[in-house]
């Protein structure tokens, strides 16, 4: 499309705000972040420069790679757990629950926690998992254990549990949508041809739902990868994730150059991941027409 004199005012009215938004709040800040990554820290502050020392430090000092690998591990665990919980849930809502009202009610109950403050929901897990917490009171009062256990809180398992709880709606939403959009006649056709329920799922429903799996997994992974609250609230001494490192570099360490270099790396990692996921998504697409 070429812009004619007549369409330009309309075009500008419609798109200038979003374009300015993208430019001012995304493109410019990213450019600043990437360039600060080449600056030099010099006590007590830092000064503009162009050098690769920050990147060299990130790769030379094992503390950064340790944390990046740990973050990848936690995010992957959260994604897998959220998928294992979210897929059956979405499937149940779409194919098993017959009453639309009940289905909507159950779907809303999955989504509603998103309206509650993230911090509050994470904090709640502290109350559940703590030494004096709800879970321990239950175990002690039912006689399953004689004294409260301290294995539930302040470790990586607690972080995974909390993050799965918080991000499961982001897995269920896209899955629910794709499953709900699968034409029932395809399932009926498969059954008419004498295929059993499991093979119908495996050969018909699952391939058609891959788009939702990829979308849900990508969102869950990226959100947990960038999380910094769970390590602070329910993580233990070995729970630092990459967002906490960033926080430290921009905070206590006052080393914005190193922090920017680290953030640039994290951004690159997430971009690669999104690229991979969009390829996967395209590969799994089935033409229904």
């Amino acid at each position: 499309m070429t812009l004619t004199r007549r369409t330009f005012p309309g075009f500008a009215a419609l798109f200038s705000a979003p374009l300015a938004w993208v430019l001012l709040l995304m493109v410019v800040p990213y450019a600043i972040m990437v360039s600060v990554g080449f600056w030099t820290r010099q006590f007590p502050l830092f000064h503009p420069d162009f050098q690769f020392g920050n990147y060299a430090q990130i790769f030379a000092d094992p503390q950064y790679t340790t944390v990046i690998l740990r973050t990848l591990k936690i995010a992957a665990l959260v994604t897998v757990c959220a998928l294992l919980l979210g897929y059956p849930l979405a499937y149940f809502l779409v194919f098993t629950v017959r009453s639309p009202r009940l289905r909507n009610l159950l779907y809303m109950s999955v989504i509603v926690p998103l309206w509650v403050s993230y911090l509050l929901r994470a904090y709640t897990w502290k109350i559940i998992l703590g030494t004096d917490g709800a879970l321990n009171s239950l175990l002690v009062s039912t006689g399953i254990v004689s004294a409260p256990l301290d294995v539930f809180l302040y470790n990586q398992t607690a972080m995974v549990v909390t993050l799965v709880y918080i991000f499961v709606p982001f897995m269920v939403m896209p899955l629910f949508t794709v499953l709900d959009n699968i034409p029932r006649r395809l399932v009926e056709a498969s059954e008419d041809l004498g295929v059993g329920p499991f093979m119908t799922f495996w050969k018909v429903i699952f391939p058609l739902s891959l788009g939702g799996v990829v979308a849900g997994a990508t969102m869950t992974f990226c959100l947990s990868f960038g999380d910094f609250v769970a390590p602070v609230l329910v993580g233990g001494p070995d729970g630092i994730m990459v967002a906490n490192l960033l926080q430290t570099q921009f905070g206590a360490a006052l080393n914005w150059p190193l922090g920017s270099a680290l953030a640039t790396l994290v951004l690159a990692l997430v971009l690669i991941l999104l690229q991979l996921s969009s390829r996967l998504d395209r590969a799994g697409r089935v033409d229904l027409s």
Binding site: Q63, V67, P237, I240, L245, T248, A252, A253, N255
Partner: peptide, 16 residues
């Protein structure tokens, strides 16, 4: 060497 101290403490926290 304030920077060195902070880096050392951060390394402790980052360690497995």
């Amino acid at each position: 060497r304030l920077d060195k101290y902070l880096e050392t403490w951060n390394a402790v926290k980052a360690a497995p």
